[in-house]
Write a protein that binds this DNA or RNA. Structure first.
Length: 290
DNA sequence: CACTTGACCTGTCCGC
DNA sequence: TGCGGACAGGTCAAGT
């Protein structure tokens, strides 16, 4: 689930829902993946929600922030006065709110709540000092440049064509591995890596440094195009992704090659093949991608 | 150092 | 139906 477009979709809704709320207390039911002292943030007001690649940061009115990574199956669901009436929780909110898979609940003022559900328990959150956010030891400090998908809200370290070219030229790994390496390029995961490579007509196993200049340019544009399309569709909800109002995204119905083994290529009708690269499912058209 | 494999967890799906 | 195995969008640690 959460790659850049999914986390962006979460961020946009969280900004609408939780900014302005005060955190009364944090109820931790499964604490293994909660780091730091919750006491540092209880009583503080939520000022902003930011995204660094696939990580979320909730900034508070004191000197602390909460960093959240939802990994594969984490869900952040809001309940409270800022919701529109009549919304419905998707069935993908597994176990419902407050059920078996709810591990953390933020109790907010004005009757608001923010639930953290996570079936596989891979997701984490930590309370850290704002000033340490970009510390090299933190997850965020190690992230590589991030594709620019909204000029009005640029990342702190945007990926430019020049940086992209340089990153690729220094790696003899398969291009798909490089696209998914968060320390090289951040925000792209398996779905969008597969789709961007198809859109650019490049085989996922090609060595990054062997791409020609025209391919580098095309891939750079394709990455941005697929990420934007993902955001436009509200993210991909194949597994467990839902936004904080409990609704699903639609990108899974619009993937270019991801999850389409055996189906005909949208471009040439050849059957899409699935292989493994770096242990991850990789989909491509053997005819269009070279 | 680069690269691969396994671990973290649980649920679902597929084949027998 | 039941059961075992493979697999799932992300990262991290350990091994080769």
């Amino acid at each position: 689930m959460p790659e850049l477009p999914e986390v962006e979709s979460i961020k946009l809704q969280l900004k609408k829902f939780i900014v302005g709320h005060k955190i009364l207390n944090i109820e931790i039911r499964y604490g293994k993946k909660f780091e730091g002292e919750k006491g540092k943030v209880e009583g503080a007001k939520i000022q902003d929600v930011r995204r660094f690649a696939k990580a979320l940061v909730i900034d508070l009115s004191n000197s602390y922030s909460i960093v959240i990574h939802v990994k594969l199956t984490g869900q952040l669901i809001y309940e409270g006065p800022n919701l529109k009436k009549g919304h419905q929780l998707s069935k993908k909110v597994i176990g419902g709110l407050g059920g078996k898979h709810t591990h953390i609940i933020f109790h907010l003022d004005k009757g608001g709540k923010l639930y953290f559900n996570d079936v596989r328990k891979f997701g984490w959150m930590k309370v850290i000092q704002k000033s340490k956010l970009k510390n090299q030891t933190e997850f965020i400090g190690k992230l590589g440049p991030e594709p620019l998908i909204n000029a009005n809200d640029p990342p702190e370290n945007p990926l430019t064509l020049d940086k992209f070219r340089e990153i690729l030229s220094k790696s003899s790994q398969a291009i798909k591995i490089v696209l998914m390496d968060q320390e090289k390029i951040s925000g792209v995961g398996n779905i969008y890596a597969n789709d961007a490579l198809w859109l650019a007509g490049i085989k996922p196993v090609r060595k990054a440094k062997d791409l020609r200049e025209d391919e580098v340019k095309k891939l750079f544009k394709s990455i941005i195009d697929v990420l934007k399309e993902g955001i436009k569709r509200g993210g991909a909800s194949e597994l467990a992704f839902v936004t904080p109002d409990g609704s699903e995204g639609k990108y899974q119905d619009f993937t270019l090659v991801y999850g389409r083994e055996g189906e005909s290529c949208k471009n040439c009708k050849t059957a899409i093949r699935k292989i493994k690269i770096g242990g991850r499912g990789t989909y491509f058209c053997p005819n269009c991608q070279s």
